[in-house]
Write a protein that binds this DNA or RNA. Structure first.
Lengths: 228, 228
DNA sequence: AGAGCTTAGATACGAGCCGTTTCTTACGGA
DNA sequence: TCCGTAAGAAACGGCTCGTATCTAAGCTCT
């Protein structure tokens, strides 16, 4: 793995090699087993090269994870709210699995203590996919007449994500059946039931009603790739 | 903090002092800052004493967390499914907060790699409270005639827990408003909506119907205190 | 009360890691 | 071709984990 006899890599090429080495170490030994020295050796370079790019081990790990995230800027139109939601959740799954359970937990743990990064992660954990939900999936559904704005509040909008995240954190996987069950036996029934209950009660809806546009700008409005 | 001039502690007394020291270190510096040496010093003892009780740092941390968990073997009867569920979720919150967000994440991270402990934690993360849900809250609700068995499937039963856990992991807190929102705008509507949708469809219910008794024994059937 | 066994507590060790410093040398742009 | 930038090697101080060794305190049993 030494650099002997090979031409020196630089810039992005070297960086990519380091990300790959980090990821390989992560897979083999887990979050705790990733050490700067091992990564450097595996990438055929040395520690100072790593520290010139990232100020700490955590920094390297976070950026390695972000680097692996596939893009997610649209949701295929499935024709119904049901299928759009399923598609969106499959997209979320793809992103979650591209990082993996243990790295995700490790990153969350290390990041909690840093309010700034924590806020950023928090925003990204929720913001991006939620924007797709609001600006694409629910918009389509409203245009189709499947839902009315008052049927939804903030918690209902993030409900499918919360459940997929829970599944992922507990089991490390999100099978198709789980996604469909979440949509078919929780999300859609909750929407229907809420409509029903609101009609029965005839009371003013809770704070959900005419919710202000909370996150304009749509997906991609952030200043860094999303963590999920 | 040295032991000079004090009478030596032994057994449970010493153990309690170590747990307290560990917890204090956890509060002050976070998961990563808890070292065996600092804990030993703070507890007025030394490393070998720690290693005689726990085989590793993680072992100590996990057991410190478990040690802090308040008991939870019943749910006050609120008279309705709604209030019982709120009560149960408040109990869950109490348990979550007794450990805290970062320690919880840290423990999960470290434990994921150990299939045995992972399974145990997984079971405890879900099992105990879920048993209270099934054996107390839902039983009462059925006796009151509020629900029928076919209204529920596994996912719906754990739904409130999943959402509270999500809230806790993302924000580190679970305010009363969150609990009530979860129950009033998700859980109860989902039950109502499911009933409604099943009636409309007239199809056979999904696998929810006559679910077998999956966890007999009720709360306390485990072999260790629950993690949540 | 005394003997003996258990276990607390002090100290030191090897191995490994983090993050830094110093230095040499390859490479690429002008 | 020359020179600045950055790669790569080596070593360091400080810290941590987990272990080994030893002394002595105090509980238990007679």
């Amino acid at each position: 793995m030494s650099q002997e006899g090979r031409t020196r890599r630089r810039g992005k090429e070297l960086e990519r090699a380091i990300f790959e080495a980090t990821w390989a170490e992560l897979q083999e030994g887990g979050f705790a087993a990733v050490t700067m020295e091992r990564v450097a050796k595996r990438a055929g370079t040395s520690k100072p090269v790593l520290y010139r790019r990232w100020s700490s081990r955590v920094e390297l790990l976070v950026n390695t994870a972000l680097h692996r995230l596939p893009d997610a800027d649209s949701v295929p139109d499935g024709g119904t709210l049901r299928d759009d939601t399923v598609n969106l959740l499959k997209l979320m799954r793809q992103r979650l699995l591209s990082i993996g359970r243990e790295p995700m937990l490790g990153i969350l743990t290390e990041v909690v203590r840093n309010p700034e990064v924590n806020k950023k992660v928090f925003r990204h954990l929720i913001g991006h996919l939620r924007a797709l939900m609001t600006d694409v999936v629910l918009k389509r559904a409203a245009e189709r007449g499947e839902i009315e704005p008052e049927d939804l509040n903030e918690r209902l909008k993030t409900l499918p994500f919360d459940l997929v995240r829970s599944e992922f954190i507990l089991t490390g996987a999100v099978p198709d059946e789980a996604i469909e069950e979440i949509v078919d036996t929780v999300f859609l029934p909750a929407l229907a039931g809420r409509k029903l209950l609101r009609r029965e009660a005839r009371g003013p809806a809770d704070a959900a009603g005419a919710s202000p546009p909370e996150r304009s700008g749509g997906p991609g409005a952030g200043d860094a790739p999303d963590l999920v």
